[in-house]
Design a binder for these strands. Structure first.
Lengths: 141, 141
DNA sequence: ATTAATTTGCAAGAAATGTGCAAAAAGTTC
DNA sequence: GAACTTTTTGCACATTTCTTGCAAATTAAT
């Protein structure tokens, strides 16, 4: 059962427009989270969208519909990704590529410490910054 | 041995100016990380600084000198804090207050998974979002 | 096919952050 | 400590990311 953008739009009561459908397809298809401007560049290249605000507005809609999720990296730029199970990211500080880590025991690990603060966790957010295989083995600085 | 802003500036070869010294004192004194604009408001109130760019420039200098560290929350705004030992943060999604968690076994936890990706971790970054004691027990929505 | 609701494109507006430049302050030298 | 050099501040303005108002275009509903 492949994930289908049109089905999701219908299910969430969102109308099917060229830009909107393609934005969702891109997020469904991409393994790594994308920034709004990365999404826009793809659409623009395909001649499907002429405006960044269309992308921002659709990403906002998708967030509200809980189809996608977003988070902000330390560069201050938000990244968006299709909502898969809970996971974290590894970010290459050299080539900037991101990948997903599909496991998490973080909350469990910090449970006691958090309780000590009287804090009730709702969500959490973890990224690793470092070097990917390609970058760490590359002979070039 | 109390931490002294002047000593740190001298040690790092940074000249001692009114705004600079006070920015560092504020970061040394504050338990929670602050945004540039929060730092600026304090300085402005004290009549010690008339300009946000002075704050940004000093924070940048402190980062380069590795006196402080910064990270960006999911609101897209960078936070700055005096460099203490490695730790993580809990952020109240209601009152926005932050606190520190002074322990971390995260890298160890993900070690295998990271190795599987051929990824060499350099740093990582974790925040918990949720409700602080005050906010979770408050009867008011 | 016509009408009603939504979305797009464009322009303009925020907010956080960065920069060029002259005036002011700090550090240095004698 | 006066004169000189270097650095920093203040100000204005630039940049980037993201948001919003509004008319024209597109989609959905009848």
């Amino acid at each position: 059962m492949k994930i289908n953008a049109l089905d999701i739009l219908k299910e969430k009561g969102l109308s099917n427009t060229g830009p909107r459908k393609r934005i969702l397809e891109i997020l469904i298809g991409d393994q790594a989270p994308l920034s709004a401007s990365e999404v826009f560049k793809k659409l623009e290249f395909e001649g499907l969208c002429h405006n960044e605000s269309t992308v921002y507005r659709n990403l906002q809609k998708f967030l509200e519909a809980e189809i996608i999720q977003s988070f902000t990296l330390n560069d201050g730029i938000a990244r968006f990704e299709f909502k898969k199970g809970h996971h974290h990211h590894i970010v290459c500080i050299k080539c900037k590529k991101m990948d997903c880590l599909n496991l998490c025991q973080v909350e469990k690990l910090f449970d006691e410490a958090i309780k000590k603060h009287g804090f009730m966790p709702v969500s959490h957010h973890l990224e690793f910054y470092g070097l990917c295989k390609g970058c760490s083995t590359s002979p070039l600085k």
